[in-house]
């Protein structure tokens, strides 16, 4: 529980942070909330030579409207997601997922950017951010780029983040009036999702106009359940349709298995939780 020797640098600005990661490509890790990185370092599963703390980088903070999207700074804490009025109005699914993350300490310290860059395949936020069509704003000394979260997440603890890049913010389309729900079956030990399903539905005249289903805990990375979504659009979400759509939520996914849950059981749980999340999201629209 003692990390290897490392150097610690507290960046005062985004420029400084970008300089630091550029100087030590591949050797540096950004320290955001620290609730994933520090335990990994203490177990010596992560051994960065440089730890760059972005606690004081103002450019990574803040939640604001930018036309059709909500700009959410990478250093936004779970706690801020849970309590921010703009998020509550325009992207409440993120708040619902944040509420189910870890414990009070983790929610007070953990950040949006940290969660997405860490890419834990059982974390809550990626499912909700996928179902919110989140796009990532990445910066480096080479410039800026935007990437859809679905393309950014690549595998367990693996992303498209380049060694010299810093995640600055996420952008989510503003979706007031959508019905949303996050349903999670937590692991009794870790609290991580054995299965977590985030559902967002837009309705038109009593039928599903658009639906986004984000799933975590089930595969090597959080994913959008496209097969399920396709079966739901245009329907009135009656029970048979719901069941049939939920049944294909793991189609094409290499389902995880561990001591706690076999692949067979996890597949079943995913379908059950997809059904529950979709029903809850649908009910939220009616309400």
């Amino acid at each position: 529980m003692i990390p290897e020797r490392f150097r610690y640098h507290r960046a005062r600005s985004l420029d400084e942070a970008l300089d630091l990661v550029a100087q030590a490509p591949g050797q540096a890790r950004i320290l955001a909330g620290g609730h994933s990185l520090i335990p990994l370092m203490k177990l010596r599963l992560a051994q960065p030579q440089w730890v760059i703390d972005v606690e004081e980088v103002a450019e990574l903070r803040g939640i604001r409207e930018e036309g059709e999207v909500l700009h959410i700074g990478a250093m936004t804490r779970y706690r801020e997601l849970m309590t921010d009025p703009l998020v509550a109005r325009d992207a409440p699914l993120l708040a619902l997922a944040a509420r189910r993350v870890g414990d009070l300490q983790v929610r007070n310290r953990g950040t949006v950017g940290g969660a997405l860059c860490h890419a834990d395949p059982a974390a809550d936020l990626p499912a909700a951010a996928l179902a919110s069509d989140a796009e990532l704003e990445l910066r480096s000394r080479r410039g800026q780029r935007r990437v859809a979260l679905g393309d950014f997440l690549q595998g367990p603890l693996t992303t498209d983040l380049k060694p010299d890049e810093v995640l600055v913010a996420i952008h989510v389309p503003r979706r007031p009036g959508w019905g949303v729900a996050y349903q999670k079956f937590p692991h009794p030990a870790s609290g991580y999702a054995v299965v977590g399903v985030a559902a967002a539905i837009a309705a038109e005249s009593g039928r599903v106009a658009r639906v986004c289903l984000g799933v975590t805990g089930v595969g090597p990375r959080a994913y959008r359940a496209a097969a399920s979504e396709e079966r739901l659009v245009g329907t009135g979400l009656d029970p048979e349709v719901l069941r049939a759509a939920s049944a294909v939520v793991t189609d094409g996914i290499a389902v995880n298995h561990d001591q706690f849950a076999s692949a067979e059981y996890r597949r079943h749980l995913a379908a059950t939780y997809a059904e529950r999340a979709l029903a809850a999201a649908w009910a939220a629209i009616q309400a």
Binding site: P188, A189, S190, D258, Q259, F260
Partner: peptide, 29 residues
Amino acid sequence: ALWEGAVYGEDGQLLTTSFLDYAMPKARF
């Protein structure tokens, strides 16, 4: 009754080696 249990693999490796996989009871349960 419900959560705890140390699990060894057949090769004698302990598979439950941290609070991530060894489930201690929590107040909210």
